[in-house]
Design a binder for these strands. Structure first.
Lengths: 244, 244
DNA sequence: CCGCTCCCTAAGCGTTTGCTCAGCGACCGA
DNA sequence: TCGGTCGCTGAGCAAACGCTTAGGGAGCGG
């Protein structure tokens, strides 16, 4: 009666929630969480992301989240059953987004080198652009409840499999030279994820630039000929998504 | 009176504390913190490392730390003034160790490729071998008090400078091909550090193996010819920089 | 106008938190 | 034998925590 499963839009059918239907076309909402239905629930989610990223889940109080959203502490519990559910929604949506980014990049080309470059570029760019969200998504997993944790871990395994698949294909067709495919895939993923830890908005590099740098570094890591691909970075063009 | 600055051995002269005098020779104590003087203080430090690594600083209670060390909650405050001071000691000793590992590796050879390989190998190996400690050292910084935080950040900058220095030398003598030295140095450091996040003791790879893998990956990232693998030509063969 | 629903708040619940303090037993030089 | 120090404990304090509950006011169909 009070709050059965949190906000309807986020907890609804698997494809509803934040990122509508592959709206990559034109002006999609700048910040994620753009379509969480009760407006107050969206503000609370956004406030929680900021607070969790800044101080960590355990150091964040429900009073802090509520006041950032301009509400009383009790208002939180109208939209979410617990503080942990807030983290779970953030984590779930973020991981689904990660998997989708990798999947789309993987489908954007046929030869492994282009697929790998596109995947790393898009993945790294997301971690830099949305580093606040990504920090929570990637580094607060251990605060999830047991059931939620296992669900999220399954999504993470999907990401790892996609990346490993690209490396396997690349080795198979002779584009890559990799001795330890599984270890290298893990290292690449780790390299990309850690961007969320150190990236700051005021820095000298844009997310786009870091994406390009990292795509090049990773191609070198797998022994792909690097000089060949000059400016082939248009698997999907995007708007000027530079601000939140 | 009660506890002025914590345990004397840790807070003593800069070179005392945990890792005595370059005991690289034979059977040095397996765990770090081997020489923290009051035995109870060492047990508390060890307990804190475990607890912080497992649940994070904020989710760890002083009662949990004390009970892991087999003591009452009050005993903690005989050796440390606050819970944060425990974290500070762990962080400081860990970062000093990091800088020393990088410094020694940097001095272990003359040509940049060997220096880079040795640095990455040793740094990664430490993060895997002592992943419990390293996890606290690398991922709980934000819980430090302001004054302690700035002190630690200075140590981290030292690490970054050492690595950037190697890359600059390598580019200068033509061993490396790196467009963005600063960005690449950051990426390499990030790659190594993140080992502490995902490494588990039961895994299929030993710290030694991961160190070797990562040294190879990083040499590729900087465009250095990798001597060991495959049929690549050999400009200068690398010494046996495998041991430590 | 009524009466219902939906959001929201003020107040506060029971618990846990970091930390304190009086005191006690073991040890030790005299 | 004795007084003093050291390391530690049992009990507990004030504050902060996650979360609950009773109730109020704006909007709206009738």
């Amino acid at each position: 009666m009070t709050a059965e499963t949190g906000p309807g839009a986020v907890d609804g059918s698997p494809e509803r929630g934040v990122d509508g239907g592959r709206g990559a076309g034109a002006g999609e909402p700048e910040d994620a969480w753009g379509e969480v239905t009760p407006d107050a629930a969206r503000r609370l989610l956004l406030a929680a992301v900021e607070a969790f990223a800044e101080r960590g889940f355990h150091a964040t109080t429900t009073r802090d989240i509520a006041s950032r959203a301009g509400m009383s502490p009790a208002a939180l519990y109208i939209h979410y059953r617990t503080k942990e559910e807030l983290l779970y929604q953030i984590s779930r949506v973020g991981h689904e987004r990660s998997v989708r980014i990798l999947t789309e990049a993987n489908d954007s080309a046929t030869n492994p080198a282009d697929r790998l470059a596109a995947a790393v570029h898009a993945f790294v760019r997301w971690h830099a652009e949305r580093h606040t969200t990504a920090r929570v998504v990637q580094y607060e997993l251990s605060a999830l409840a047991e059931e939620h944790y296992t669900e999220i871990v399954a999504l993470r395994r999907r990401s790892e499999e996609i990346l490993r698949g690209i490396l396997e294909d690349g080795v198979a067709v002779g584009e890559f030279t990799v001795a330890d495919i599984r270890g290298t895939a893990l290292a690449v993923l780790s390299l990309c994820i850690d961007v969320a830890r150190w990236f700051r908005s005021g820095g000298s590099r844009t997310p786009e630039e870091i994406g390009t740098l990292y795509a090049d570094l990773v191609l070198r890591m797998v022994g792909a000929p690097t000089g060949a691909r000059g400016e082939d970075d248009r698997p999907e063009r995007r708007g000027p998504a530079d601000q939140r």
